[in-house]
């Protein structure tokens, strides 16, 4: 009896300890580091908001913050737009290769982000596959400069994160009662109108989920911007590394980390609140 009453507590102790040790404490350290000055990684005692003021008043830093947002939103939109038709096909196909096709669509998850990103580097660089191909076709005289660029980062991230979009949208399509589409059709709605009036609005939570997941990962991504970007395309994550390891200004790095964390959380809360309101109305 006593043991049974304890079981739920024991079950939450392990994940709670894990979260406390690896998320809550580091976040607290990060936030406290961000409101003090520091000299050579050693914090001094004075409370100040100077770090934030520095980051939010400097054009270079501001553009990194803005670029992270743009990359997050663009990757999210591209992933959702590409993943929806693919997920729709994978859910609805009656092909006997259905399971294989689903496995193939999710296969990118098996390769490491670094490998996939260097793949894009091989394709996009000055002497890369795309330039060679275009030049041998006579389409261009001079090689196109595609790296480093924000677009390349977005392409790389959208490719890497596509499976997340496919998974979330497939889940919502699978959860859709097939009789709803049949009902719409029996009432005179053609295939397109059935899709727009029934399928799309009822799978909107999956679209939103896929977008948010991609957005959150893309906005805080480090490896892809580091490989496909450069000094002119710094994002928050690469900036944090620079503060921490090159400039040894841990307070500025922490403040940038705090901005990343808080802004991502606000956006997630806003969008999920929007989603909830839509579901209730």
């Amino acid at each position: 009896m006593k043991a049974r009453r304890l079981t739920p507590y024991i079950l939450i102790v392990v994940p709670a300890t894990f979260l406390l040790a690896f998320f809550v404490i580091p976040s607290a350290v990060l936030l406290s580091m961000s409101v003090v000055q520091s000299e050579d990684t050693i914090p001094t005692g004075n409370l100040t908001l100077d770090n934030y003021a520095t980051l939010l008043s400097n054009r270079l830093y501001l553009s990194a913050i803005l670029r992270s947002f743009i990359i997050g939103v663009a990757s999210g939109v591209i992933v959702v737009v590409l993943a929806y038709p693919l997920a729709y096909f994978l859910v609805r196909t009656t092909s006997r290769w259905k399971n294989l096709l689903i496995a193939l669509s999710l296969a990118p998850l098996l390769a490491s982000v670094i490998v996939r990103t260097y793949g894009w580097w091989v394709v996009l660089n000055r002497e890369g596959a795309l330039n060679v191909a275009l030049r041998s076709l006579g389409a261009i005289d001079q090689p196109l400069i595609m790296l480093p660029s924000t677009s390349a980062i977005v392409i790389g991230l959208a490719h890497a994160l596509l499976p997340y979009g496919v998974l979330t949208i497939m889940a919502s399509l699978n959860g859709l009662n097939p009789n709803l589409e049949r009902a719409a059709m029996s009432l005179g709605a053609g295939r397109v109108r059935t899709f727009l009036a029934v399928t799309l609005p009822l799978t909107a939570p999956g679209i939103l989920g896929g977008f948010l997941l991609t957005f959150a990962i893309a906005m805080s991504a480090y490896a892809t911007p580091a490989i496909l970007g450069g000094p002119t395309t710094e994002v928050m994550a690469t900036m944090i590394r620079r503060f921490m390891l090159e400039l040894l200004d841990w307070s500025l790095g922490s403040a940038m980390g705090a901005i990343l964390l808080v802004s991502a959380m606000i956006l997630l809360l806003l969008t999920s609140a929007l989603g909830n309101r839509q579901r209730e109305s």
Binding site: N177, N179, L180, R182, A183, M185, S186, L187, G188, A189, G190, T194
Partner: peptide
């Protein structure tokens, strides 16, 4: 189905 002009009621109402 959308050109057959039928009224359908489903088991789960849909």
């Amino acid at each position: 189905p959308f050109r057959r002009d039928l009224g359908l009621v489903f088991q789960d109402y849909a």
